[in-house]
Amino acid sequence: MKRNRDDGKRMIRRFSRLRIFEHWGIVLSTLILFATGLSQRFWHLDFSQWLILKMGGIDNVRWIHRYAGVFFSFELILNVATAVAGVVRGRWSPSMFITRKDFTDAVENMKYYFGLDDHPAKCDRYDYMEKFEYWTILMGGFLMILTGTVLWFPILVTKILPGEIIPAAKALHSNEALLIFLINALWHIINAVFGPEVFPLDTSIFTGYISRERMAREHPVELARLEEVVPAEPPAVGSDHPAESPVATSGASG
């Protein structure tokens, strides 16, 4: 659970191997999906045309996109299934659920940013920003899977539903893709790469470990629970129930 780095920094286990593997899968599939999908959405750009021709033409690109989509769907389903199973069996706490504390945290952080408060919000295992990112991508992902399937099998779909569903699905699919892309590119990459605390790279999702120092700053509630120290403030209503084992906590739906 804990190990010390060579420089004496105390490290805490944050992500299990399953999550690391899962993250790599998502990285790979979304990169392929973005490359093949956005080049189709922005087909008129020279770069898109160059990319599509490099990938072997529009038909190839569409097939790559569909297969990558299938891969992505499996990952998403696996993620939800393991989370649900973990929570139902009582091994994990539902640490990713949005609670009232997330909203108060956001307000508290804003106050801190504007100098109205002297400390940032004390967050649990996942702060409100991580939750926002997770849920937009999870829900967006399901919307993408649904609309993508409609676009893949338009003839089958129009056997039951009106024809206008197809262009509507196309509009949703391409707009939502852009939304997810912007959250990933702008939000996630900036936070994980250019964030002042983590620059040049937040390695926790690759190594599975995070420094105690960062834990204390970013996830004090969880750290307190791990170290069985009473947190400075009582946890807000609706926050995670303390888990029996920290290892189990680390595997929650992240």
Binding site: P154, T158, K159, L161, G163, P167, A168, A171
Partner: peptide
């Protein structure tokens, strides 16, 4: 394809509140 299918094509119309409001 059945009779619903051609409606997947927007008949050269740009979506507007009166034509293809859903999109």
């Amino acid at each position: 394809s059945n009779e619903n299918f051609p409606n997947a094509w927007l008949f050269h119309y740009k979506p507007s509140p009166s034509k293809h409001p859903l999109i």
